[in-house]
Structures are given as C-alpha cells and as structure tokens.
Amino acid sequence: MATAAAQRTARTPADGAPDTVDTAAYQHAFDAAVAADERIEPRDWMPDAYRATLVRQIAQHAHSEIIGMQPEANWITRAPSLRRKAILMAKVQDEAGHGLYLYSAAETLGTSRDELLDKLHAGRQKYSSIFNYPTLTWADVGAIGWLVDGAAITNQVPLCRCSYGPYARAMVRICKEESFHQRQGYELLLALSKGTPEQHAMAQDAVDRWWWPSLMMFGPPDDESQHSAQSMEWKIKRHSNDELRQRFVDICVPQAESLGLTLPDPELRWNEERGQHDFGPIDWTEFWEVLKGNGPCNEQRITQRRRAHDEGAWVREAAAAYAAKHTGDTGETGATRA
C-alpha cells in the first residue's frame, strides 16, 4: 500500500539535478538495491524510466480494476438468487477497492489521481483488453471469476515481490481478496455444469468465449513484448508472459475436467517430454484489434466510465462544500499531495 504520506511529497535532491557524478552514485545504489532484492520506496532515487514504467503499469492495472466492474455489474440485477446477488455485489465492490489501492500506489510516484482518470477518459492510458468483451449470459459471471480472475491471480502473485514497495504491498492485499473471486466463479460454473442440459450448455458456451481472451491477458509473446526484458531486469516483472501463460494453461486443464467442461482448443494436449501442455496458436490479430479500440465493447466501456464520472460530480462537489462549511480548515490541514 502507499507508504507514509510525507514520503510522496518530497523527491530526492537528485531529481532534476544535472550533477552527473551524483546521478551515477544514485544509479549505483538503485541497481544494488534491486540486485539485492530490496524494495525501492517512494522517496528513494529511481531512474526516470523506472518511474515512468511503473506509472504506466500501475495506472493500467488500476484502470482495469475500475473498468472491470462493468461487465459483471451488468448481471447484478439479474442474479438468479439473493445469495448469488450478494456475492456478486461484494466482488464488484472489491474491484473498486483494488482500483483505489492501485491509484494510491501510483500516486506515490508523483502523479495525481485526477491526472490518471483524465488519461483513462481521454483514451491515453489503457486497461486490460479482456474487459472489452461482453457478458452475454449469467454463466459469463462464472467464466470471468474462474478464468479472468484466475489469469489475473497467476499474473499478480509474482507482483507481490515486485521491486517497488507500494505496488508490491497493494498486490499482497489484492491477491488475498482475489481468491474468493476465483472460487465463486468456479462454484457458479460447477452448479450450471451439473444442472439441466441447457444450463450445462450455457456454462460451456461461456468457457468457449472466455478461454482465448483469458490467454491473451498475459500479453504478447515474449519476442514481441516491448517492455518485458527491461521490466524483468528491474524486477518489476518476475516471469515472462509466455511462462505465466503456460503456468495458467497447466492449472486450468484439470480444473476444467473437474467442472465437466471442455476448453475450446483441439490442439490442447499433455506433452510428456516438456511436462507441460501444448496448446494451439493464439489469434494475436484479434488481440491487437481489441487493444486498438476495435473490440466489441471498447466504446461502451469508456462511455459508461465517463458518464459515471460526470454523474458523480455533484456528490464530490457536495462533499467538498460540506467539508468547507462544517470543518473549516480541514481542507488546508489535509493539504493535497505536493
């Protein structure tokens, strides 16, 4: 989580200082800390590119949590029982919380929440392409929990050891909460799979649609991944995209069997020699198209996000007016980030 407040307000003297001797010394200390698996904290000197990479990644992560509320919230009013409804509401609320933890972590790097939201709304920062797919049936809520949250967990567990302290601490908290998300999805799919033939078919259809986009969540193949090598050197990332994707496939195959559902890949089979599953080629054209904004729901997601922000303006204004009227100087004593 974000570290002590004051830490984010100040920057080291090295920031913007043209003294190359000092910069070299700071760089050396930074490299040594990373090499020793120590954590970098907000007030420590860090290379500009490291800071920029973290802001980009944490912002994209935060935006994904917030946009990710939409496809699932789509089913809250139509959940088939009060139990399922309460679970789904708790899950969507968690996603909002995860977004806030991550925005806090990003803010420790010297950016502001308003700036991040503006960039999201303007399409200048991305969110995970997975959330541009529609939730067509109730079974999609299960498939998202099992596959999408499952892929997210596979990605996020190593991030708990990320070299940047506030990000790593946010991930610890998120991973703890995430496991309920995956289990509720699995349980939901299992209930459908064991239900009527129609329910079983609905579960299978959802898995068929979400499987490939879930594999794409790990990002492009290693040889096409723009930031991977540098991020691994900085220990922001601990495993390559393809490594994590393979791990996820190997985890899912037996889980699908227990569900009584199949994964939509005719080439999926155990490879004795590798001790891993072989799987078919991923349609990267689709991935890049969705990323560029041409997915089924890109327009809808960002329009809805902007509308929610605009329609919430009066709440923010009222709260600020109330604070100014009743607590006098609170706004000043709790001054904004420098």
Binding site: A6, T12, R43, T333, G334, T336, R337
Partner: peptide
C-alpha cells in the same frame, strides 16, 4: 486517519 500533509518523514538520503 491522519492528514498526509501532517506527517514529517526522515529522508532516505
């Protein structure tokens, strides 16, 4: 809850 601006931290340098 503590106003962030009210915290004074020692410097890593």
């Amino acid at each position: 809850v503590v106003p962030a601006a009210a915290i004074t931290a020692s410097s890593p340098d």
